[in-house]
């Protein structure tokens, strides 16, 4: 527990020690707002739906950029050896790094709250679905981070980690889109779609928080945190 907190603080310090964190937040906000407002004023409906539907795709670039460093850098620079010979369990370290990544992306997401505030100034906004969607976005981002950190633990190369994470996340997103899942026969299509990261995000976004959606994200996070621990245990480099 103590180690988890310590590694969490160290990761946060790492993010905010350089200007990259602020550039990241700014770019994330600008890109999302641009993609959203580009169509918002054309439609004339006070709704955040388009905002939340582009979010998973914007994460596709931003989350791997956050997670690529987590283990790959430690491994490349050799600090992994210092870290893993500390009196701490691998699990504590993995959870600490996961929480830090999720918190960092979480801050980026919460900074976009300025967008619904702007939208609300143009007309009546259904805050219920907005709040639910934000909760969904945090869960979605956390799942991305768990996957990204795991991939980062498999390599000593940050670029490899970035690309592989992006590809995996992309696949997990597109299986929730109609052109992809409709290729499969009906029964399987429903299963495939259920494994999409996006599907559950949309479900939460409707304003109903279903325990199945929470369970899904919880399982994805748990599974990849577990894989991450296993990949550290298998160290042989």
């Amino acid at each position: 527990m103590r180690s988890t907190l310590t590694i969490f603080r160290k990761e946060m310090l790492g993010y905010f020690n350089s200007a990259i964190a602020y550039i990241f937040f700014t770019l994330f906000l600008i890109l999302l707002s641009f993609l959203f407002f580009r169509i918002y004023f054309l439609q004339g409906i006070v709704s955040m739906n388009d905002f939340f539907s582009v979010m998973p795709w914007v994460f596709l670039i931003f989350v791997p950029a956050v997670t690529m460093k987590s283990w790959a850098e430690e491994r490349k620079s050799g600090t992994m050896e210092v870290l893993l010979t500390m009196p701490a369990l691998d699990t504590e370290l993995v959870i600490g790094k996961f929480l830090a990544g999720a918190a960092f992306v979480g801050i980026a997401i919460l900074l976009t709250l300025i967008v619904p505030l702007l939208v609300a100034s143009t007309g009546p906004l259904d805050w219920g679905t907005v709040v639910a969607s934000y909760l969904g976005a945090l869960l979605l981002a956390a799942a991305y981070v768990a996957i990204g950190n795991f991939v980062s633990s498999l390599t000593g190369n940050q670029i490899t980690a970035f690309l592989f994470t992006a590809v995996i996340l992309f696949l997990l997103l597109i299986i929730g889109t109609e052109p992809v899942y409709s290729v499969f026969p009906n029964v399987i299509a429903e299963v495939v779609r259920n494994f999409s990261l996006n599907y559950h995000f949309q479900s939460i976004g409707r304003g109903v928080i279903d325990s199945r959606d929470l369970l899904f994200y919880g399982s994805v996070i748990g599974l990849f945190v577990y894989y991450n621990v296993k990949s550290l245990e298998a160290r042989n480099w």
């Binding site: 790492g14 020690n17 620079s77 050799g78 600090t79 050896e81 010979t85």
Partner: peptide, 13 residues
């Protein structure tokens, strides 16, 4: 107490 080979450090701290 362990000082690994090549003395790895977090260089941005």
């Amino acid at each position: 107490g362990y000082l690994p080979e090549n003395n790895p450090l977090y260089t941005d701290m």
